[in-house]
């Protein structure tokens, strides 16, 4: 895919800005991660769609939907797909690197500090509080994700409960659970869609 074709808006859409260069992609994602306390997605959207107009809102939603359902760290995949739409494979690398470089070194620094001070009682207490809050945040995320499933009739809630039970309660290995449940769930969805 050539980058100029990728930046062409669909008919009728407002004209897009010029496709960003590799350096612009790298710096854009670096800036997003440095300013993105509390979630990088809103910042990414603001920069790509509203500020720089590198993408239409529709295009953004399409890419987002695809990355939500593919495996792997969604938001990291999203940056790579954005980069590849703007500047091909090298654009993907520029965006991916720009997005990961700051959090990476931050985590290395945190790892160094943790290795040094993990036995300090005060730090242990702080981390205890943080862990409890992190658990709460995870619970809120689950409720938000699960709500739409449980409001509709269909096999989805059963599959979600079976997956949660197999991994969360039975502690069965991920590979085995997915090898069974993924095909079952897809067949159920197929059957439910054709009723």
């Amino acid at each position: 895919m050539s980058s100029s074709a990728a930046a062409q808006p669909p008919n009728g859409a407002p004209p897009l800005a010029h496709a960003p260069t590799h350096a612009e992609l790298f710096l854009a994602f670096l800036r997003i991660t440095i300013s993105g306390f509390g979630g990088t997605l809103p910042w990414t959207r603001r920069m790509f769609v509203e500020e720089k107009k590198w993408m239409t809102a529709e295009e953004f939603n399409d890419v987002y939907a695809l990355c939500q359902f593919l495996p792997g760290p969604n938001i990291v995949n999203l940056t790579a797909v954005f980069g590849s739409r703007m500047r091909g494979w090298t654009g993907a690398v520029a965006a991916w690197t720009g997005f990961l470089v700051f959090p990476f070194f931050l985590m290395i620094a945190a790892g160094v500090l943790y290795a040094q001070y993990s036995d300090v009682a005060a730090l242990q207490r702080v981390l205890g509080g943080l862990a409890a809050a992190a658990a709460g945040l995870l619970i809120a995320t689950v409720i938000k994700m699960a709500a739409p499933l449980f409001l509709k009739l269909g096999p989805a809630p059963l599959v979600a409960l079976a997956t949660a039970g197999a991994i969360g309660l039975m502690r069965w290995p991920l590979v085995a659970v997915l090898a069974v449940l993924a095909p079952v769930s897809i067949m159920l969805a197929w059957w439910w869609g054709r009723r």
């Binding site: 359902f69 994700m145 989805a156 809630p157 997956t163 039970g165 991920l174």
Partner: peptide
């Protein structure tokens, strides 16, 4: 629903 179940786990 698989992904919802995994995050719930």
């Amino acid at each position: 629903p698989i992904s919802v179940g995994l995050v719930a786990a």
